[in-house]
Design a binder for these strands. Structure first.
Lengths: 110, 110
DNA sequence: TTTAATAGTTCGGCATTATTGAACTATCGA
DNA sequence: TCGATAGTTCAATAATGCCGAACTATTAAA
């Protein structure tokens, strides 16, 4: 009934200090999610479908991957119209786990 | 019947170039395995029980964790008497995934 | 202002993966 | 040879992951 205010995040995002290392690694330990993170690292703001690693992946699976990335403190999602806009929480993540994301991204598909 | 020759590895170890990044990350994405890897990074050669993160963990679980680390190219296991000796495949892993293990270990329990 | 289309989320069932007790194998020491 | 040690393997249960189907919210068109 009450409509969403545009900037009001519909999702809960953890504080980075509450994210354990193994959770962060788990979120990155999947080639589809890795691709999504790499895209977000390159593109700043992406809707869920645009962040998808390919179009073969079902919507529900995609939604689940993004939920996991959110829980790991890797992305922030806010609603804008009917799209959900995702951005990498790069600075915060790097502050929490210095050098980790760089190392992972540098080794992607190597 | 045929006894094990001491230096003959009883286990199969992958070539590092055959280990995909997500498998390596998956192996590291567990706090027990992270502890084991950190111990091996500090101690060079450890039996399975000595590599264990704590003594509460069942033998079969421990064995399974080590199998996973082996499959990810992180450790090498050889038999010596009735013990299995585990060592980190540090140089090889670093050559395959430069900076990754360093970044992970540096961020452990931070 | 219905109606339809779009962009997702959530739910529930099936499949895969993890954990662990129990039984087994191999080696060493007495 | 007997017992203890250091593991592995197996099988059953528990926990996770994947995805189709149904649902919600927003926008656009009629």
């Amino acid at each position: 009934m009450v409509p969403y205010i545009d900037d009001m995040p519909r999702f809960t995002h953890p504080r980075l200090e509450d994210v354990p290392l193994d959770l962060a690694l788990h979120a990155l330990a999947d080639s589809n999610r890795l691709t999504m993170v790499a895209r977000l690292a390159a593109t700043e703001r992406l809707s869920c479908t645009d962040a998808a690693p390919c179009d073969a992946i079902p919507k529900s699976t995609l939604s689940n991957h993004l939920k996991l990335l959110r829980a790991a403190g890797l992305i922030e999602t806010t609603q804008a119209g009917r799209e959900m806009i995702n951005t990498l929480r790069r600075a915060e993540f790097d502050r929490r786990f210095p050098g980790l994301l760089d190392a992972v991204l540098a080794n992607r598909s190597a």
